[in-house]
Structure formats: structure tokens, C-alpha cells
């Protein structure tokens, strides 16, 4: 088990290294910082001293190592758009807002999708199943930004129940969380349903019934415990894509999280901040997948002892 986990952590770190390399290369592709940072009428002397000062005269691999060394310490330079702000610090300041919204959306997804998927499998072909299918179809075919706008229109403008945008009380988070969660509920519920259908057909489910186990326990203990691996695998993707994919929704609802920062930084060609956001997203992705790997160990004894 320790071997399994150390291998997972090692491969995550390697992936992170590759990402830093890609981020570095993309920055190179986007043009020289000289053009971006110095005024058009800068003298050759100013340009030369700038190049020396920033280490741009060194070979690329040396520049990469410097970048990597600084990145490892969380130093991505200072923001260009928001002068005086440390790039990574600025991104991390916005992280709690993203985690709050994403956490709520994740919670909504799991709490709704799992029971829905299980019920759809147990009552296959019944009204719950059909209802869930329609719900999923709607959720998966609507773009989330469009859903967000519709939600604002209905619940904020028309009914006036919830605020249109911004961050503040809990009620501010409800609409954006629904807009993010709906798609994920659809995906997760469908996966849960198909995994459950498969497991419910297996002999050990029959044996549990033969033992006199109640139907409730057959479904929620014997079947779900084995079907859980499939939705769990998706949960890693779900958590990561909710946390990193809120870029659009944060913009629609003016939610001041990392996604909003990412959009603003890209608009302002603020490379240090863009780099910091990408690396922060990559770390979030990795952590959520590591958590899933850990959960495998809890759920599946074959991983634990294999």
C-alpha cells in the first residue's frame, strides 16, 4: 500500500514538473517581455540593461532552471496589472473564494447525484429513472454560462429571490453553484446508475438476498460499496474541473475567485499572474486526484492488499 501511494505521489510530482516546463515554453512563445514591459521609445541601452537584469541573455535551459527554482519557492515575480502585488500571493488570496464556491458545487453534485443514480438503477425503467435521464440530458446539453444567465434571469431578475452577482452572504453562492453543479450531477448520476446496474446483476447480490439481508442494505451496502469505484474515479475529475473550471461562471457572476483573476490577467497580458494561476490549478488537480487514490485504498480491499 505504501508502495502504491509513493508511486502515485511520485507520478504527480513528475506531472507537475512537466507542467512547469510547458508553462515556461508557452511564455517564451508569447513574445519577448522587452516589448511588453518597456515603452516603445526605450533606448538600446535601456533594453540591454533590462535584458541583463532579467537574465534574458542566458541560454534557455538556464532561464528555465531559474524559473523552476523561483517557482519552487512560490516566487512568480510581481504582477504587471496590479503593480506591487506578488503574483502567487495575489492568486492565493483569491483561492478561498474559489474553494467556497467549488466546495458548495461539489457537495451539491455528490449529495444529489449519488442517490439519484442509485435510485435510477434500482427502479430501472420507472419514473425516477426516466426523470433522471431527462434531468441529465438537459444538464449535459446546456453550456454552464448560458444556464447561469438563465438562472439569474429567473431567480434574480424575475422572482427576485437571490442576488444577481458578487460575493457576500451564502445566498450569493447558490446560483453560481447550481450553474456549475448541474452538468456534474448529470455526469455523476449517469455513471453511478450504470455502475450500479452492473453490480446489481452479480451473484453476491443474490447471495446477500438469500442470506435474508434487507433490500436497503443490499443496495446501499453490498452494491454501492462495489459500484463506488466508478463514480469515485470520476469524482477526481469532477472536483478538479469544478475548482479549475469555474473560470466562466466566476465571470458570469462576478465572483472574485481565481477564475476571475485568470481572465483579468490574460486580458492584461499579466504573465506572472497567469503562470501562477496555471500552476495553482495544476496543484489543485493533482491534490484532488491524490485524494481519490487515497479513497481507493479505503474502498477497495484489492488495492489495499494487492
Amino acid at each position: 500500500m505504501l508502495k502504491y501511494l509513493s508511486r502515485r505521489i511520485a507520478s504527480s510530482l513528475f506531472a507537475l514538473l512537466v507542467i512547469t516546463f510547458i508553462v515556461f515554453l508557452l511564455t517564451q512563445l508569447s513574445g519577448s517581455p522587452v516589448d511588453a514591459l518597456l515603452p516603445d521609445d526605450a533606448t538600446q541601452e535601456q533594453i540591454d540593461s533590462f535584458i541583463r537584469e532579467w537574465g534574458l541573455d542566458k541560454p534557455l535551459w538556464q532561464q528555465y532552471l531559474t524559473f523552476l527554482g523561483n517557482a519552487a519557492q512560490g516566487d512568480f515575480g510581481t504582477s504587471l496589472k496590479w503593480p506591487g502585488q506578488d503574483a502567487m500571493g495575489f492568486v492565493l488570496d483569491r483561492m478561498p473564494a474559489t474553494l467556497e464556491l467549488g466546495g458548495l458545487a461539489i457537495l451539491m453534485s455528490v449529495v444529489i447525484a449519488l442517490p439519484l443514480g442509485v435510485a435510477a438503477a434500482v427502479y430501472k425503467g420507472g419514473s425516477i429513472d426516466n426523470g433522471a435521464q431527462i434531468f441529465a440530458l438537459v444538464g449535459q446539453s446546456m453550456p454552464s454560462f448560458w444556464l447561469g444567465i438563465i438562472l439569474i434571469w429567473v431567480f434574480s431578475v424575475w422572482l427576485g429571490w437571490l442576488p444577481t452577482s458578487g460575493m457576500g452572504s451564502f445566498s450569493h453562492a447558490i446560483l453560481p453553484a447550481i450553474a456549475i453543479a448541474w452538468f456534474q450531477i448529470s455526469a455523476l448520476a449517469r455513471l453511478t446508475r450504470s455502475a450500479m446496474l452492473e453490480v446489481l446483476d452479480v451473484e453476491y447480490i443474490k447471495l446477500a438476498r438469500v442470506k435474508g439481508v434487507s433490500e436497503w442494505s443490499v443496495v446501499w451496502k453490498h452494491a454501492l460499496r462495489n459500484a463506488a469505484v466508478v463514480p469515485l474515479t470520476y469524482f477526481g475529475i469532477l472536483a478538479a474541473s469544478i475548482l479549475t473550471g469555474s473560470v466562466v461562471i466566476e465571470t458570469v457572476f462576478s465572483w472574485p475567485g481565481m477564475g476571475w483573476v485568470a481572465i483579468e490577467a490574460i486580458r492584461g497580458r499579466d504573465f506572472p499572474v497567469v503562470q501562477a494561476v496555471i500552476i495553482a490549478y495544476a496543484v489543485i488537480y493533482m491534490i484532488s486526484n491524490l485524494v481519490v487514490d487515497l479513497l481507493y485504498v479505503v474502498v477497495d480491499p484489492r488495492v489495499r492488499h494487492g
Binding site: Y204, L207, A208, R225, D300
Partner: peptide, 16 residues
């Protein structure tokens, strides 16, 4: 009580 056909699949892999 019942003994089922297939010992490979009639025990639940997730429980001791």
C-alpha cells in the same frame, strides 16, 4: 439457506 453456482462471484469482494 442457499449455495450458489459460482464461487468466483458469489462472495462480495469488498468485505472480509
Amino acid at each position: 439457506a442457499m449455495i450458489l453456482q459460482d464461487p468466483q462471484t458469489s462472495l462480495n469482494p469488498s468485505f472480509t
